[in-house]
């Protein structure tokens, strides 16, 4: 059954009295087991949402409920047990001197016994394909590998939701690919909710739902197909749709019927094939 795991109710937030509102009266819900993408231009408030979910920031107005608990000073440590977060900069979240120590960090904080710790470290590194690097120091890893370790660190504490806060923004295409594959696998194996915050629309195709942010407000809440069909509007708010969607858009503007908004090459080819065979 669908269960609301995270709820924002009329939340507003600013970084200080003298700053403008980073989030203005936003409301939305995220279900357990759901993959949700939050997209928006730089400065649209999308990263602020991530930090509000696990109480790294607390809102001035409105209410945030996570796992049935309102997020406040008393509940944050409980909430952080079920909310894992991968940040943007791979270097600045790597605490340990080796891969093993880094995964251990979160477990040590929670007082997990050593025997179990070792088991969980091995399992979670295995899940992200980093077992061979267990004794490596961070400066010998690529950005993508460091982010995979960050994901392993989170898996080790078996959370109910993983937040990727622009976790691929500083990676090269290979690293980005690695992360998206890893996330996909993890999502399928462990039943958890995934909140992926990004400005790269190529990363939203697999999401169940997309929240588009602009200027601190929820601009659109929809599915990837619908988002991809709004080329002009998205460009106006500083985003861009993938090439495939652009081509589909141009095709339909000159009279080639594209009934099903394509998310990838194969879907576009099917549409083209349908058109071709009708001729």
């Amino acid at each position: 059954m669908k269960k609301v795991f995270i709820a924002f109710r009329n939340v507003s937030f600013r970084y200080g009295e003298e700053y403008p509102w980073a989030l203005k009266n936003i409301s939305f819900e995220i279900f357990s087991d759901e993959w949700i993408a939050i997209i928006g231009h730089n400065g649209s408030g999308k990263s602020t949402i991530a930090k509000l979910i696990n109480g790294l920031l607390l809102p001035q107005e409105g209410e945030i409920i996570v796992d049935g608990m309102p997020v406040n000073e008393e509940t944050i440590w409980d909430i952080r047990k079920s909310v894992g977060m991968v940040f943007q900069n791979p270097d600045n979240q790597f605490v340990g001197t080796t891969v093993r120590d880094d995964v251990a960090f979160g477990l040590e904080n929670r007082g997990i016994a050593r025997e179990e710790m070792i088991q969980r470290i091995n399992d979670s590194l295995d899940a992200v394909g980093m077992t061979d690097y267990i004794l490596h120091e961070p400066h010998r890893l690529s950005g993508g590998q460091k982010q995979r370790v960050a994901i392993a660190s989170i898996l080790a504490i078996s959370p109910e939701v993983i937040i990727l806060d622009e976790a691929t923004a500083m990676l090269d295409p290979k690293g980005r690919h690695e992360i998206m594959n890893t996330v996909n696998e993890v999502k399928n194996k462990h039943h958890l909710a995934l909140v992926a915050i990004t400005h790269d629309l190529n990363e939203i195709t697999q999401a169940d739902r997309v929240i588009v942010m602009s200027e601190g407000e929820v601009w659109l809440e929809s599915n990837p197909r619908d988002v991809f069909s709004r080329k002009e509007e998205l460009q106006q708010i500083g985003l861009d749709i993938p090439f495939i969607a652009k081509l589909a858009d141009d095709l339909s503007s000159i009279g080639v019927p594209i009934k099903n908004q394509p998310l990838n090459h194969e879907e576009l080819l099917i549409e083209l094939w349908k058109y071709h065979s009708k001729m």
């Binding site: 090439f243 495939i244 652009k246 081509l247 141009d250 095709l251 503007s253 000159i254 009279g255 080639v256 090459h265 576009l268 080819l269 083209l272 094939w273 071709h276």
Partner: peptide
């Protein structure tokens, strides 16, 4: 995508810097 169009639909178009719109017209 041009490679895939060739492979799956047997239509060969070459890329010469055309815009997405022009490409759509050629495809059509």
């Amino acid at each position: 995508i041009l490679f895939k169009v060739k492979e799956k639909l047997g239509i060969s178009l070459s890329y010469k810097g055309q815009s997405t719109y022009d490409l759509a017209c050629e495809l059509k």
